[in-house]
């Protein structure tokens, strides 16, 4: 093998490795980005499921605490990652909090939560205002289906 051939092979090897390394790095970074995005989307499900199960099974104090924790988390999440809207979930959580207060006969607190629920829900339905009872009916119906 001549000196020129050796140099040519070596150069080809270097170029091949560099290109391969570049594409491999790019693909891995892309995969890690996607994986991070998916984890960010799905991590809140732990609190969502917990809040719902507590709402169905726990006493007023504990169910209220779980729903409020989830609502506060979602509001914070919405602020930090505005590209991942949580408005629908927030509307549902506040409606459940209102339903919980209805069951405990705390009408004023229930109305406060419904104001928040409507605030988060309105943009989704394109401006059409839903009444408190319509929203409560929808959430109750959804919960009955999940049973």
């Amino acid at each position: 093998m001549t000196r020129a051939t050796k140099i040519l092979y070596f150069a080809a090897l270097l170029i091949g490795l560099s290109i391969g390394g570049f594409f491999s790095f790019r693909n891995t970074t892309r995969f890690l980005d996607v994986s991070h995005d998916v984890q960010r989307q799905t991590a809140p499900w732990v609190l969502r499921d917990f809040a719902y199960i507590q709402y169905r099974n726990a006493d007023h104090e504990h169910a209220n605490a779980a729903l409020l924790t989830y609502a506060n988390f979602l509001e914070e999440f919405q602020k930090t990652y505005p590209e991942n809207p949580q408005k629908g979930d927030l509307a549902v959580v506040y409606t459940r909090l209102a339903l919980l207060e209805d069951a405990a006969n705390n009408q004023e607190q229930s109305r406060t939560y419904m104001t928040k629920a409507r605030f988060w829900y309105s943009p989704i339905v394109g401006g059409r205002e839903l009444s408190d009872s319509e929203m409560k009916f929808a959430v109750n119906k959804m919960d009955a289906r999940m049973q």
């Binding site: 984890q39 799905t42 991590a43 809140p44 732990v46 609190l47 914070e76 999440f77």
Partner: peptide, 15 residues
């Protein structure tokens, strides 16, 4: 927020 998400991820994975 990041630390909460990371802890929730661990719990979700284990669950």
């Amino acid at each position: 927020m990041e630390s909460t998400l990371s802890r929730l991820n661990e719990v979700q994975y284990l669950q």
